[in-house]
Design a binder for these strands. Structure first.
Lengths: 87, 87
DNA sequence: TATAATTGTTTATTATAATACACAAAAATA
DNA sequence: TATTTTTGTGTATTATAATAAACAATTATA
């Protein structure tokens, strides 16, 4: 399995997720921006795969109730780190 | 289940994950910084839960081969969005 | 315990994300 | 089709993340 994932790809995916969630809530970019105290331009850029700050990403994730899921994933990754493979 | 997860918590968790991965590879902050072309100060701040850019986070994730896992998680979240609950 | 390595912290500077406008293009809707 | 809404894009300014360098405080190791 030789499928590389690039940083750019992930940024585009994150933007896609934001757009997908936002539309499911019937919100415009303006609505979302206002709801979480960011400018529409920041949302606009994020949804199109541009660089952003962690705070921006997490504010969006928080608004769409994704923080718990994210924390769990991080916890699991840390735990996996400690369990040395038995094989 | 009323367990809130805050943005600050997640940032601290991400820093913890970075430190955990880094140490498992027997790298110092300086080693990691050099390996991915960032300054040690940037790694230092990230590991201690400060704000960072998405690029910084993804460069670190990429170095520890976590991008594929991340992309999968995003894809799954997007898919879940489209599958309206059947219950 | 002395030495070396790593981490934490400070200051000044540079690069860039975020903001606030405005306006055009595109999409939705009346 | 006309009107409204939403999205995309540009420019200038502000806020702040990233860098670089030095030094103190810890932690590891000889």
């Amino acid at each position: 399995m030789i499928d590389f994932v690039t940083i750019k790809e992930v940024k585009l995916k994150l933007g896609e997720l934001c757009k997908s969630k936002r539309q499911s809530y019937d919100m415009s970019q303006e609505d979302l921006a206002e709801a979480i105290g960011l400018s529409r331009y920041t949302i606009q850029k994020f949804e199109n795969g541009k660089n952003a700050t962690l705070d921006t990403v997490l504010k969006i994730a928080n608004h769409f109730a994704l923080l718990k899921q994210l924390k769990k994933a991080i916890d699991k990754t840390i735990e996996d780190e400690n369990n040395i493979s038995l094989y």
